[in-house]
Lab assay of single mutants.
Amino acid sequence: TYTWNTKEEAKQAFKELLKEKRVPSNASWEQAMKMIINDPRYSALAKLSEKKQAFNAYKVQTE
């Protein structure tokens, strides 16, 4: 089980997950979700809006 003390740690864990699963920077949210949804870190960020925000930040960083 994973635990995160801060929102920032949770966001980092979520981005690490995207990186580890090699989600391409041109992937849509739907494509990315299919690649990461079974990992416990997918739940790091509770709100869908937070997940999408972190995903978009990840995409910008990896382009």
Results as ranks from 00 to 15, higher is better:
A13I: 07
F14L: 02
R22I: 06
Q53Y: 09
A54C: 10
Y2K: 15
K15P: 01
A10D: 03
M33A: 09
A54T: 06
E8K: 09
K59Y: 04
K11M: 15
L48K: 12
W4T: 07
F55D: 02
L45W: 01
N5G: 11
Y2P: 15
A10F: 03
K7G: 07
A27W: 05
K34Y: 10
N26D: 15
K7W: 06
E16W: 04
V60N: 14
A32V: 07
T1A: 14
E50P: 01
S25G: 13
N56P: 02
V23D: 01
A13Q: 06
L17V: 05
N56R: 11
N38F: 09
P24S: 06
D39H: 01
E9F: 03
W4G: 08
Q61E: 15
S25Q: 11
K11I: 15
T6P: 03
W29M: 02
A46K: 12
K34I: 12
F14G: 00
E50F: 03
K59V: 10
K7I: 12
V23T: 03
K34G: 12
Y2V: 15
I37Y: 13
A44E: 03
K19H: 15
K52I: 15
T62E: 14
R22W: 06
E20L: 03
N38L: 09
T1L: 12
A10H: 04
L45A: 02
K7M: 06
K51D: 01
F14C: 02
K15N: 15
N56S: 09
M35I: 09
N56C: 11
K51L: 05
F55T: 02
T62I: 13
A54E: 10
V60S: 12
K11A: 15
T1W: 09
Q12F: 10
L18W: 01
A46D: 14
K7A: 11
A46M: 11
E50G: 02
E50Q: 06
N56Y: 14
R22T: 05
K7R: 07
A27S: 09
E50H: 06
P24L: 02
A10I: 03
K52W: 05
S49N: 11
I36G: 01
T6V: 05
E63V: 13
Q61L: 12
N26A: 08
S25W: 11
N5R: 06
E20V: 05
K52S: 03
F14I: 01
T3P: 15
S25T: 14
L48N: 08
N38W: 06
S25D: 06
V23E: 01
A46C: 10
E9P: 02
E9A: 05
T6F: 04
E30W: 08
Q53K: 13
E50R: 03
K34E: 13
K11P: 03
K52C: 06
P40W: 11
Q61A: 13
N38V: 06
S28Y: 04
R22L: 15
K7E: 12
R22M: 13
E8V: 06
Y2R: 10
K59I: 14
K52P: 01
K52D: 02
E63A: 10
T1H: 15
K11S: 13
L18T: 01
L48H: 06
T3G: 09
K51R: 08
E20K: 02
E50V: 03
A44C: 06
E9M: 04
W29S: 00
E30I: 09
A54K: 02
L45V: 06
T3I: 11
L18E: 00
E8H: 08
E9S: 05
A32Y: 01
N5K: 11
S28Q: 06
E30R: 11
A46P: 15
A44P: 01
Y42D: 01
Q61G: 11
M35G: 03
K34V: 11
W4D: 11
A13E: 04
S43Y: 13
I36S: 01
R41S: 02
M35C: 07
A57T: 12
P40H: 09
L48P: 07
R41E: 01
A27L: 08
E50D: 10
Q12V: 09
S43E: 14
V23H: 01
K52H: 11
K52Y: 07
E16D: 14
L17I: 03
A10R: 14
D39R: 00
E8W: 08
K21C: 08
S28I: 06
L45P: 02
W29L: 03
A32L: 02
Y58F: 07
P40I: 12
Y2H: 15
K21Q: 07
N38Q: 10
E50N: 03
E20G: 04
M33H: 10
S43D: 12
W29G: 00
